[in-house]
Amino acid sequence: MTSTDHDIKVLNSLIETTIDSAEGYGEAAKDAENTRYAALFQQRAAERRQVASRLQQQVASLGGKPEDDGTVLAKAHRMFVELRSKMSSKDDTAIVDEVERGEDHIKHKYEDALKDTDVSAGTGSVINEAYVSVKSGHDQMRDLKHALHATK
């Protein structure tokens, strides 16, 4: 085991979850009734792809093979599969609720990675930069969810 193996493992796990999140946002964008929400979801999907790309670059710089796909086993992916089944009603509130649940998952996963004291300083810095984007997305979806529920 090399000194970078742990960093690569942590980063690849985050990459999988981030790709799952991007795919989930893409699905939400396709099925949102409100075009404003669809545009917002598309924007977040693109942002998540950029975050995954930055993490992949870090894995490559450490000499590892970056993940390039999400994982069916990821909890976030299962949440977005559930999202797809709920979207048949085209209820934007239900879509936002499921997206926000996925955001809770990814936010906690990044927070756990930030607490990992075995990660190198350089990798920790890259994770922290990615977390800023993840937290912003989480907070935006949380606020949107609360606003939608307040109007019902």
Rank of each mutant, 00 (worst) to 15 (best):
Y110W: 07
A113R: 04
V126Y: 04
I15N: 04
A130L: 02
V134P: 02
H6P: 02
G124R: 09
L148Q: 07
D118C: 08
T117F: 12
A39F: 11
R101W: 09
K145N: 04
E111H: 14
D97T: 04
R54P: 02
A52V: 02
L55M: 03
K65E: 13
V72A: 14
A32V: 06
S133V: 07
E129W: 10
Y110E: 01
K9S: 11
M141P: 00
A121I: 14
R48C: 06
T35A: 12
A121Q: 15
H6A: 03
F41N: 01
T17C: 11
A39V: 03
M87A: 14
G64P: 09
G102T: 08
E100T: 14
H146F: 08
H77E: 12
V126P: 03
T71I: 08
T35D: 12
L62Q: 06
R44F: 07
K90T: 10
R142A: 14
P66K: 03
N34A: 15
S3V: 09
I127Q: 02
T93R: 12
I127H: 04
H138V: 02
K65A: 10
D20E: 05
G63E: 13
V132F: 03
H105D: 09
F80I: 01
H77V: 06
S89N: 13
K75N: 11
E82M: 09
I127S: 03
E111A: 15
E129A: 11
I127T: 01
E111Q: 13
H146C: 00
S88E: 15
Y37I: 10
R49D: 09
T35I: 10
D68P: 03
R54K: 11
K90Y: 14
L11A: 02
S120F: 03
D7P: 05
E103S: 03
G137L: 02
M87F: 10
V59G: 01
Q140V: 11
M1T: 05
